[in-house]
Design a protein around this nucleic acid. Structure first.
Lengths: 149, 149
DNA sequence: ATAATTAAGGACTATTTTAGTCCTATTTAA
DNA sequence: TTAAATAGGACTAAAATAGTCCTTAATTAT
């Protein structure tokens, strides 16, 4: 189904809330209350986002989390990476060792093109786009086939 | 990690083998031997591909599987769909009922654009592309950001 | 100083998904 | 009629994901 994990989904909900009030510091507790996601789960997600430099944290009383950058500079790819590790459709794309399908695996090179394509797509969508009102595009142009000649 | 399942990976290996000898009928047993994937697993994958009209099967002695269309007309999206169901990054994108994150979920509309983008990307790559020798693209142009104005 | 508040890090359990196997029925060719 | 195949579905095992909890560290307010 090629889907994102629940945690990534939660992360976009959390980040979109934070993006709307981007100057304020929010504690994990507050975010949990606002989003309705259980506190331990919120904490886990926030920690991952800090490690990936999507958020910045301050400890102690009055501490909490803020966006590390403006929403325009936080890509969906960065969020996915933070929660799920590197974006790669196939196991091989990450490490090729242990791939026993040597015979059928000329495929590999071309998969990496597809990975790149999807990565670029996710890189070009930002948090700012996610919180923007929906716009129906007039045309959708994805010239992936042009990668091959 | 946004990755495909192993079964989908196997499927591409199987299909690329079949695409190279696209006129011949191949039995599950033969495909298992050639690819090194265990027979029960190969069978399971082949069944799914038949149900999704990617392959056509004939029963009985001398039966087996052939591609339903020429490789140029079998998209990677179709293969992923066959093995993993509809391509959608978020749960919401499939069915919105039961989504409790009503407050933060203006996001939904824009996610569907991203889903569409990725679907288009996978739709535009075919089995023929996968078995083609690798070409390094001169430029990669993905104007997703143009979807928003 | 001390207490209260808040994040960091990591270990752990439970749940769900995915992978893989196997059995029985059906179809077709020789 | 027999052997060779696929069809369909039930089932088990393994792995990944989600979710919780505990202990430590940092900061602020009293």
């Amino acid at each position: 189904m090629l889907r994102l994990s629940k945690l990534t989904d939660y992360a976009t909900v959390i980040l979109s809330f934070m993006a709307r009030e981007k100057t304020q510091v929010h504690a994990a507790m507050e975010i949990s209350t606002v989003t309705g996601i259980a506190l331990p789960t919120v904490s886990k997600i926030l920690k991952l986002l800090v490690n990936a430099d999507v958020l910045v944290s301050t400890r102690g009383a009055k501490g909490g989390y803020v966006l590390a950058r403006i929403p325009e500079e936080i890509s969906v790819a960065a969020v996915i990476c933070a929660l799920e590790g590197p974006i790669a459709l196939t196991e091989c794309s990450i490490s090729h060792q242990g791939c026993e399908q040597a015979s059928g695996c000329d495929i590999l090179g071309n998969w990496s093109l597809i990975n790149q394509t999807i990565h670029n797509a996710l890189e070009s969508v930002t948090l700012a786009d996610l919180i923007r009102p929906v716009v129906v595009p007039e045309e959708v142009l994805i010239p992936v086939s042009s990668l091959y000649r």
